[in-house]
Design a binder for these strands. Structure first.
Lengths: 143, 143
DNA sequence: CCTTACCGTTGGGGCACCCAATGAATTAAC
DNA sequence: GTTAATTCATTGGGTGCCCCAACGGTAAGG
């Protein structure tokens, strides 16, 4: 039996956690050039995808707490990337939309995020990257 | 071009982050049965591995901030899993050692963590698990 | 000596995650 | 149709992990 720490560090959960942390940092640093945090970026992307959408819908799709969604959208709105308008059909809801500035930032972030991903996967050949994605996809979708 | 959110969620960093989050949760739930958090477990294991060791050494080996190490060791010491004794050779240092109780907890946590890892990897065959580990290891050690 | 560096501790802050409660507004039940 | 249950956005807590700065006490180098 290996020693306790070596045992932990040989577990897949530890290894995948380390790789995820590095990837997270790479992407975070990349999109920081556009002044966005990871979750802000994700919310901006989801807003662009689902057109005028209520905050609660965004929260459900991204598994973001309503409390945190308020702060994220406040930042995006202050940066002029997103608009909150009252929904005439349901006055409880805020209809969130992306501004042209937001779409431009989103386009630039897409390239930045891809570059960060390439850097993470740089040790792997294209075929190996595909293998890794296939295995991770099965872990993610199977349970 | 895919839509913005689909683009993000197709990136390896997103996928590995998701898998890591699930694995993290599984292990955290497992060792919570022993009253330990993930970092407390790691520090306890590192303490067992490196015998009497100074806090700063533990922090360097696990990349834990000295401030956080104080709290972690406070908890472990309050739980009777670890001892802090002044180092006679260097009175700045605390010689941290594991108690018999700590070793017992560590043994039980090892089994719990392995079970959690098996659950995470359950969709994969043994050979596929090996492939995944090999690919992740290269991503982790190469850069 | 005396400067330099380290040790543990305390103090900040930020980000991601989670839970509870509120008032306003909508929907469902009766 | 009035009432009860639900949903919405917001505010209020809290935790874990990460990073930086400062402090008194200690050790090592010049």
């Amino acid at each position: 039996m290996t020693s306790p720490l070596q045992h932990i560090q040989s577990l897949p959960t530890w290894l995948v956690g380390r790789v995820a942390a590095r990837g997270r940092g790479l992407v975070a640093d990349a999109i920081a050039a556009e002044g966005l945090k990871l979750m802000q970026h994700a919310v901006l992307a989801a807003t662009a995808e689902y057109g005028p959408v209520a905050q609660a819908d965004l929260g459900r799709r991204l598994a973001v707490d309503p409390k945190d969604m308020v702060g994220i959208l406040n930042h995006l709105q202050d940066a002029g990337l997103v608009l909150r308008a009252p929904d005439p059909a349901d006055r409880r809801k805020n209809a969130v939309t992306v501004t042209p500035d937001g779409e431009a930032v989103l386009r630039r972030c897409a390239a930045l995020a891809e570059a960060a991903n390439d850097e993470l996967l740089s040790p792997l050949a294209p075929q190996e990257r595909q293998q890794l994605m296939a295995l991770l996809t099965r872990l993610h979708e199977a349970p």
